[in-house]
Design a protein around this nucleic acid. Sequence first.
DNA 1: CTCTTTAATGACCAACCGGTCATTAGCAGT
DNA 2: ACTGCTAATGACCGGTTGGTCATTAAAGAG
Lengths: 199, 199
Amino acid sequence: MTAPQATPCKRVRNPQLHREAILDAALRTFAERGFEYATVREIAERAGVAHSSVLRHFGSKEQLFRMAVPGPWDVAEVAPGEPCMLPERIAAAYVGRMETLAGNDPYLALLRSAATDDCAATQIYLAMQDKSLEIYRSVSGGDAIHNQLPFLASLLIGVTFSRYVVRAGLLAEMTADQFAEHLGGSIRGVLFGTQAVQP
Amino acid sequence: MTAPQATPCKRVRNPQLHREAILDAALRTFAERGFEYATVREIAERAGVAHSSVLRHFGSKEQLFRMAVPGPWDVAEVAPGEPCMLPERIAAAYVGRMETLAGNDPYLALLRSAATDDCAATQIYLAMQDKSLEIYRSVSGGDAIHNQLPFLASLLIGVTFSRYVVRAGLLAEMTADQFAEHLGGSIRGVLFGTQAVQP
DNA sequence: CTCTTTAATGACCAACCGGTCATTAGCAGT
DNA sequence: ACTGCTAATGACCGGTTGGTCATTAAAGAG
């Protein structure tokens, strides 16, 4: 019975630290569970604060979502280079990012949340898509490719869904290198291989 | 005050009819809202029964989901034909199905629900994906294509997400015909256009 | 008509949600 | 050491959810 609880209810008073901890926990939780399944209480627990503190800092769950999940994406750090290798560079940038951030990527939080039609998530998601399309557009040279860019975005969405959200099936079983290689081929097909059969 | 309520609480007693009405309402609701946001009470209201009747008929919300949402997919009614036009036939079959069923497609129910990590939805979703991959495999001729089939599936997932779930952006603004045409090109690229640049 | 069967119902429940608020306690200024 | 400010807290609230159960009333059998 002699419970030596050294810190029964030791309060720490550090707004900025807590704020950052909450934002970090929120991003991870939203990415794992999506907006609806993520609860303020779980975010608070992960951040090591009371759930009321979370609401106090950010007002509401939705405002927290907006603050925690970065909006316009900074993904497309596609290395510059010769246009003919563009698909492989896009694939490398995408796979590199997703593999390093693992399940904590805000992209996953947006994807999961947008699927359940949460309007905030959908709006942010759209903004992100426009932004990344713009970036891809500036990187890719030809005008003819531009029409295919939405399909490139869709391919990346679907691939993300299979490999990182559902986490099962053939794409999920590949190693990162295998995945990047095949993905590069598919991206190449979407961007350049749109010619019909020639007689 | 003379309320002439002819049917104050007229009960109808027809198990099979109610069962079908519930299944139909469930499919629509799951497709619109996803597993989590869909409530048993709303399904019951749409079916015109009490919410307890829904639980009585199907035991639980999850069992209802399994019964209402068709598992292995019957999608790929890809018309047979010469292999060189396969992409266009796949695009036509896909767009035709999605446009006619509008928002009631079980595919949407699965996609929305799987995104929120619901395990039942994920399992059904995987089964569906395997099934459709198998169908595509039987339709497509060459062996070299098989490696690209998961990416075809992913492309369709992403495209579905953009046009029918988020319902915004460039893909959503296209007419069905425009969409089918561009999609055919992208499918062609994924399936056949994987060759690297030739010297 | 009467009785039995059972589909259908509405009241009810515990659990959990996001959000509010009075209270408590750490820290800076004096 | 005292005190005011306010970050942090836990108790609490109304609402909603999936699920249970005793009660009710249609439909078939005699």
